[in-house]
Amino acid sequence: MGQQQDIYYVPSKSQWPIVAAVVMFLTVFGAAHWLNAEPGESSFGKTLLLIGFIGILLMFFGWFRSVIHESMAGRYNSQVDRSFRMGMMWFIFSEVMFFGAFFGALFYIRMFSVPWLGGYGHGVLTHQFLWSDYAASWGSGGGNGPAHVGGSFETVGPWGLPLLNTLILLSSSVTVTIAHHALKAGHRGKVLLFLGFTVLLGASFLYCQAHEYMEAYKDLNLTLGTGVYGCTFFMLTGFHGLHVTLGTIMLAIIWLRVLAGHFSKDHHFGFEAVAWYWHFVDVVWLGLFMFVYIL
């Protein structure tokens, strides 16, 4: 617990925090302006959003570059390493809670709001007075609510692409673990091979999901606007997909860093942090596969 340190480390001043605050502000200010623009009207919000977003990418590049330089120069002692580990763990915990909000919404909608609208239990009067012809069900029958918002639709079956995606993500978890063991054993070639597999598996997952989305929009009439079924489906799988995208990019960067020889047998927190993140993304997917696709 930070008690064997010979020396405390306090990082030098950095311009990156204030740069980060500015580009984050530009991004959301631009986005808010764009959302509020009249349809057809050209909005400077879009430009601002783009500038902000590019700024965020550059900021990440610059900030991480300086941290990597400092780490490579051996400035970080084991206490700093532990702080980084705690930071990453608690960050992943906050991500878990973020997904928790959307899973909670899904459970509430399926367990309460849809059955109540159909006249079960507690919400019986809403059913009687407003939507007496609505028979509550999930899926293509009544998943878009009593007003059948978005028109009739089909759901994505779990045993096609989603099953394949499950297998892809599970194998990617195995390959990233093999890569980690290889890193600890000092076999850089093996690390590159298996980490490369992991990146490819992540990319194929994203390809399959993009394919699934296109199919849903074109052939199944399942869109973000398809009542609560559509919005829970796309928001949950969409946020997960964003995290997979981020994870794949991070894995690719770690692959480049392995190639550049940044990691040693016992000093490779960057690798481990991304591996943790990848496992987290994997576990969330298992929850999605179970509750969004199968049940």
Binding site: A105, Y108, I109, F112, S113, V114, W116, L117, T126, L130, G142, G143, N144, G145, P146, A147, V149, G150, L224, G225, G227, V228, Y229, G230, C231, T232, M235
Partner: peptide
């Protein structure tokens, strides 16, 4: 973005 989390017509609440 046309979601219906909080709109009873679309099954939300």
């Amino acid at each position: 973005f046309n979601t219906h989390f909080f709109d009873a017509a679309g099954g939300g609440d």
